[in-house]
């Protein structure tokens, strides 16, 4: 297990150094995107419409934050990760289209994303679910907000972050997926549990 501190934009070469179980901290530009923002970004890409910012080399955070506006300044109050599997239907295309390097969320992602990460050079960093204040403390400022018509949680919040983490590298760019490893062990434990409870499989 190694600890890495990367600054955005992150290159493919840097991302390929990471292996599952490594710990990563990200400094620079990160943006939030949940279901609706993924959907809209991909629609824009298909229509050839430019996005509000160039996403290449950035970190995307599966997060719907609580944000407070005082006069003209937005402040992040709480910003923990949301469940990433909801974005599984978009993420492979998202990685291929925009060359984001770090996907941050909770709960892990599936085969399609794992394969896209191996192909294009990206990793999944697991951030502790619900640890919203830990996350908020690493967010230095809100650079801008895009697509606020989607609502506060679904909008794209573009953030300036400093050593955002710890992120456990749970999917690396070599085809490894820590959540799948745990899942395999869980599957093995299932029979032991059934036996203990006196259940037939």
């Amino acid at each position: 297990m190694a600890v890495y501190k990367f600054k955005t934009p992150i290159s493919e070469e840097e991302i390929r150094k990471l292996n599952v179980n490594d710990v990563l901290y990200v400094t620079g530009t990160m943006f939030t995107a949940r279901d609706q923002a993924h959907k809209r970004a991909l629609e824009y890409f298909k229509q050839g419409k430019p996005l509000p910012i160039d996403l290449e080399g950035l970190a995307v955070f599966h997060c719907g934050p609580i944000v407070k506006k005082k006069e003209d300044t937005w402040t992040i109050v709480a910003a923990g990760p949301t469940t990433s599997t909801r974005m599984e239907i978009f993420e492979d295309e998202f990685i291929r289209s925009f060359k984001v390097r770090v996907i941050i969320g909770k709960g892990g992602m599936g085969r399609r994303t794992t394969e896209a990460m191996a192909k294009c050079g990206a990793v999944y960093g697991a951030f502790t679910g619900g640890a919203a204040i830990l996350a908020a403390r690493a967010i230095k400022s809100v650079k801008s907000v895009e697509w606020l018509d989607l609502g506060m949680p679904e909008a794209m919040w573009i953030l300036d972050v400093e050593e955002f983490g710890p992120l456990t590298v749970a999917i690396d760019s070599h085809g490894n997926n820590l959540f799948e490893d745990v899942q395999r062990k869980v599957e093995e434990n299932k029979q032991r549990i059934y036996q203990k409870l006196g259940l037939s499989p």
Partner: peptide, 27 residues
């Protein structure tokens, strides 16, 4: 890995109280 997560949770609980902010963004 599990201990790291629980540590982050316990730290976060303290921060929420200290900064008077919701412990999780999903209220």
């Amino acid at each position: 890995a599990g201990k790291t997560q629980l540590k982050a949770i316990l730290d976060n609980i303290e921060f929420a109280e200290k900064y008077q902010a919701p412990m999780c963004q999903d209220t």
